[in-house]
Design a protein around this nucleic acid. Sequence first.
DNA 1: GCCAACCTGACAGCAGACTGAATGCCGCGG
DNA 2: CCGCGGCATTCAGTCTGCTGTCAGGTTGGC
Lengths: 224, 224
Amino acid sequence: MRVLLIEDDAILGAAVRDQIAADGHTVDWATRLDTARDCVGTVTYELILLDLMLPDGRGLDFLKARRAAGDATPVIILTARDQISDRIAGLNTGADDYLVKPFDLAELSARIGAVARRYAGNPNPQVEIGDLTIDLAQRLIQRAGQPITLTAREWVLFETFVQRPRALVTKAQMEERLYSFDAEVESNTIEVYIGRIRKKLGHDIIETIRGMGYRLGQPKRAAS
Amino acid sequence: MRVLLIEDDAILGAAVRDQIAADGHTVDWATRLDTARDCVGTVTYELILLDLMLPDGRGLDFLKARRAAGDATPVIILTARDQISDRIAGLNTGADDYLVKPFDLAELSARIGAVARRYAGNPNPQVEIGDLTIDLAQRLIQRAGQPITLTAREWVLFETFVQRPRALVTKAQMEERLYSFDAEVESNTIEVYIGRIRKKLGHDIIETIRGMGYRLGQPKRAAS
DNA sequence: GCCAACCTGACAGCAGACTGAATGCCGCGG
DNA sequence: CCGCGGCATTCAGTCTGCTGTCAGGTTGGC
C-alpha cells in the first residue's frame, strides 16, 4: 500500500515512517503542505496520514481542499490531545479516523490495517504475477503454495517492480532505493541482483529493456 | 462478547461501559475486587478489563490468582502513565494488552476488537504447526500429547508468529509487542528469545530471514 | 564482425545472527 | 530475614551467509 505521511516533527515522523515501512507499505513523507500537494498531484495514494499543525498551513485546509476536489483517499488524522475541537472538525471534514498523540505504533498499524481492509475489500491484498502470489504486507511470495524467500536487498528491488507493475524501472531508480541518495555504486550490483531474483522467481519474471532498465514480465496467461 | 470491567473510577467506568455496550458487547462492571471475584465465579467472560489500583487490593494480584487457577481469559490492563513498572509486571503475570490512561474510547474499541478477533471463531482455536498443536486461548503447546511450557515473554513472541502464519515479522514488531513503543532495547534480547523458543519447540519452527526478520517455519508435510 | 550492454559464477569481507554464560531482579519458601 | 530458583536481560565470542565486486562469457544492435 502506498501511504503519504504529512508530519513536520522529525522524530515522530521517522518513527511512523519506519513502522509503516516495516508493515510492508511504501511511504512518502512530506513535512510541509506544499510538498504534500506535489505528492498527491503526481502519485495516487491509498492512505494519507495527516498532522494538523504544519509549518505552512493547517492540515484541515489540506483535507478540505482534497475532498472538495473529489479525492476520496482515506485520511487518518494525527492530532495532539489538546486539539479535540480540531479532531471533531476533522471528522466533519471527511477524515476516516484519528490518532491522538502520543499514540502507540502498534495502534497505528492496526488503524492503517483497518482502513486498508475497509477500502480494499480483501483483508490481505495479494498481487498475482504469472504463477506467483505476492503479499506485500506480509512480505510473502508463493508459487503453488510454496513460499519463496528473498534476501533483504532482493526484496527491496523486487518490491519496486511489484508496486509499479507495468512501469519501466531504471538502474538509477533501483540504486536510489537500495542505497541512500549520495551512495555511489560503480559496479554491476543491480545486474547481479536481477540475476538472483530471476533465479529464484523464474527467468521471465523481469524483462530486460536494453539501455534503459527493467520491467516486470507479462503474466503469461494460460490459454483458456 | 461478554466483558467484565473492573474499574473503581465512576466517571471513567461509566464511559468505558457505555462505549463497550455501544460496540455491541455485554458488560458487567465491578468496582471492587471481591465483586469481580463473584462475577468470574458465576459467569464465563471472554474479556476482562482490569484497573490496577482498586479500593480493596491490587489488580495484579487478581490477575495472578486467575492465571494460577488456570483461567486464560484475555485481560487488558488499564494503567496510568506513571505505572510503567506495573505494566511490565502485568505482562509477566499474563496480561494480553495495555491501555495507558487517559486513553481514547475509540482506541479501547480497537483493542477490544483485536482481542475479539484473536479469539474469534471457535472457542478453542487450535493451530497445528509441524508436529506441534497450539491452543492460543489456553496458551497451551503440545507435541505428541506432551505439553511444552513457554515463559511469559517467550509466549508473547511465539504468539505473534502463530497469529500470522507465513508472514514475516520484523524485530521492531516484536520489540513493540514485548515493550511499549517508547521503551528502547539496545541488545539482542529478541535473538536470545528466538533461540530459546527454538530450543523448546524445535530448530525449524522459526526461520531466519537475514536483515529482515523471522517467519514461522514451514510445516513439512509429505507431499500428497 | 564489432562494440556495448548485460548475464553469471565465484569469492572475500563483514554485518548480522547465534550461543553460552554471567548478572540482576523478583517471588517464594524455609 | 535470608537463601534459593526461575526468568529477563546483557555481553562476548563465534559463526553464518548476504553483499558487493570482479572476470569472463553471452547477447543484441548496427
